[in-house]
Design a binder for these strands. Sequence first.
DNA 1: CATGAATGAGGCTTCATTCAT
DNA 2: GATGAATGAAGCCTCATTCAT
Lengths: 238, 238, 238, 238
Amino acid sequence: MAKRRQARFTTQDLEGLPELDDESPTLWDESRGEVPRKLLTSAVRCFASNGFHATTTRDISSGVGLSPGALYVHFPSKEDVLFEIIRTAHRRVLSYVSEPAVLTVEDPVRHLRALVARYTEWHARHHVAARVSQYELAGLSAAHYEEIVEVRHETNVVFRAAVERGVTTGVFADIDVKRVSRAILSLGIDLIRWYRLDGSDSPGQLGEFTAQLALKMVMTPDIDLEAAGVGAQSTSAE
Amino acid sequence: MAKRRQARFTTQDLEGLPELDDESPTLWDESRGEVPRKLLTSAVRCFASNGFHATTTRDISSGVGLSPGALYVHFPSKEDVLFEIIRTAHRRVLSYVSEPAVLTVEDPVRHLRALVARYTEWHARHHVAARVSQYELAGLSAAHYEEIVEVRHETNVVFRAAVERGVTTGVFADIDVKRVSRAILSLGIDLIRWYRLDGSDSPGQLGEFTAQLALKMVMTPDIDLEAAGVGAQSTSAE
Amino acid sequence: MAKRRQARFTTQDLEGLPELDDESPTLWDESRGEVPRKLLTSAVRCFASNGFHATTTRDISSGVGLSPGALYVHFPSKEDVLFEIIRTAHRRVLSYVSEPAVLTVEDPVRHLRALVARYTEWHARHHVAARVSQYELAGLSAAHYEEIVEVRHETNVVFRAAVERGVTTGVFADIDVKRVSRAILSLGIDLIRWYRLDGSDSPGQLGEFTAQLALKMVMTPDIDLEAAGVGAQSTSAE
Amino acid sequence: MAKRRQARFTTQDLEGLPELDDESPTLWDESRGEVPRKLLTSAVRCFASNGFHATTTRDISSGVGLSPGALYVHFPSKEDVLFEIIRTAHRRVLSYVSEPAVLTVEDPVRHLRALVARYTEWHARHHVAARVSQYELAGLSAAHYEEIVEVRHETNVVFRAAVERGVTTGVFADIDVKRVSRAILSLGIDLIRWYRLDGSDSPGQLGEFTAQLALKMVMTPDIDLEAAGVGAQSTSAE
DNA sequence: CATGAATGAGGCTTCATTCAT
DNA sequence: GATGAATGAAGCCTCATTCAT
């Protein structure tokens, strides 16, 4: 009976992907000791493969070669581990797109381009942690959730402002700022659903590519189907 | 801290949103009886709010006013309920973008536009079921998962073909078919993360808007930063 | 390592004492089903022998031949089982000493006698449940604890009033009402520390005996050591 | 509901009652170092507030500002700490009522009075440690329990002998020695359930008061309800 | 069909105790 | 002596699932 937790990707499987190993460990505050950082890395992998609720605290600690109770020496609860991961990821993204190198770019085009490229690149490079950070929000307590929502909002504001500036200055086409910003963020985030570091795109390349798409979205005026020289037969088809 | 299953959206909450009520019940095969269909609808809401693993079979059955055992009269297991939901959703999407009204459109521009509009519209209208169908794949058994992957692939092929056709016929710019198709699908799916039926966009409007963005992505040639008339100071900044 | 829970009396041991079997089952509200009542009886025995915290939920349910989880079909938590026991015991005592047959006795002497006899008799007859009810209060939640304190207070009031009446009417000696009432309650309760139904005293006999002691305490004026005809040598000894 | 260990009295609370601070530290053999004595004092408070099983070794050591492992530098186990407390308390009581000043009193009245006064006074003064010593016996190992039972028996014998002497010499009424001794001990012990040093009675006053009650119990002949001048109506009522 | 008590397999967390530093 | 990370053995409680009614 009960065919529970058929976990498609086990910790072992992931161990086989060296790219996953390389990524998370660079994420955590160095103020933490080595063991808690390893636990966070293990948790990221487990949560990303099986989801928060399908991951046991045993999975996390045994991923570091420790006993079940060891987790609680360093974190008050499983939920706190999740929170730590999500909070860190959200903060890192925000600070990565808020660095002076990006913020100080005067030209709206280059500014947005840099923003999107960095945002996308970060999510690609940290796609495992990002998956947890985007898809496991339901595992957070109400209080922790609120805290994350704040950071998300700040990040959104950064993008909306960038698009807005381009429109206001007339460099971009006359587009719907809120909707287009939302779409740009979608492009930069949704890749976590399918991205793999060992695929054909490096994080940097994917960033550039996505930035190009974003620019097309903001710089092109709406396409008028009639004016687009579309044949008569298809006009009626719609 | 962190209460067990703090369920941001409870069944009750969702009950309060009539839009959610209206949507799922239209999804299920009419060959099924009324009770199983109600159970599926209840399950969709629970899975969407709390996730598959955080949802209990009691949540599902009590959402229809039935006792714990009732679920098993109609479904062999909780995982089968999930499978039924995900399979139905995937099939509906595929058939919705494969209808003659779309397939027979000759003009690549109008064809892609219709495709994206429909795809987006479907996900917006059924955003609750779509959330389950996209984010709870990890809850499926390996065998069921495979079955879903097939359908997803077919859907992807439809989009890739549409983009390809535009490029081949020279109607679209000379773009990277695979990457752009992927990005278009991202736009049409990612809205399930934030879309609400009671928001400012109707599914139809969002579909049109997204279609426009997709057209911009396929019809605009790459933007040359130098040629874009960017000022000198920022040129060096990059 | 760890020689935890050496439980002097196990459920089995107690099973051997038929007197224990006879007592508790008569305590519970008949509105409850048979299984919950059996669980309460089992819990009383476990808590009395090992204490609340040293009793496992498994001990309780296996004492009725059920599986570990069965307890939770009938009670929300272990603490609720304790509360139910303590509440029932406290209420029964109060109502037993508040019955018309006692309350309506006009004569203060006979009134107090009846009160003490009944109070003592109840604790003797239900000494196992009473032990839980008196010594395991620390296991209650704050809210539940408050509820019990209320009932205790009511019971205390009954005794204090009885003593007061005797003093006011001049039937008793001129004693300290509060302190003597407290002492009388001590006599009626402390027997739960050592009483056994199979000992030489029946609950009724012990009740009568204790009532006699209580009467001596209220009807005798303070003893003056000097006037008590005590020899000179001992006077200085003090 | 019901939080784990809702500890009505925490170490902090107790810290606030200077009387509690003053009492236990005087109990321990001076042959022990200062740290172990402080640990015992901390343990007494914890065990008294929450019970042995609900007290963690961390509670005890942190109550002295030490780390978890510190306890084991001085005691082999938590149970040994409990044993040390209970043994010390029991021995102190026995020796306190066995001092020459009491034993040499010739007069049975003054002898019993002194015995009860001292016994009561000790329990009042050390009511916190006494609570542990009386109510946490179930936490002891079988071997340790036996050792304690011995001491208790010796103490009981002292009281029984005192009462017996009074009866034999005709100074006391013709009472049931065993039962009355038991009742007297009840009066001297049960106060630990409710006594507080900051209440209206000092240990000495409570001792005197209880001694008076004991004397009334041994010196008064049984009260004959008929002869007690009770009115006719109540005679039949019984 | 539906019920709901019961099961049994964990899952999260706690905690007495150990041990390297 | 003291520390505090680590252990491993439970303990409370949950939950998918079964089955007699």
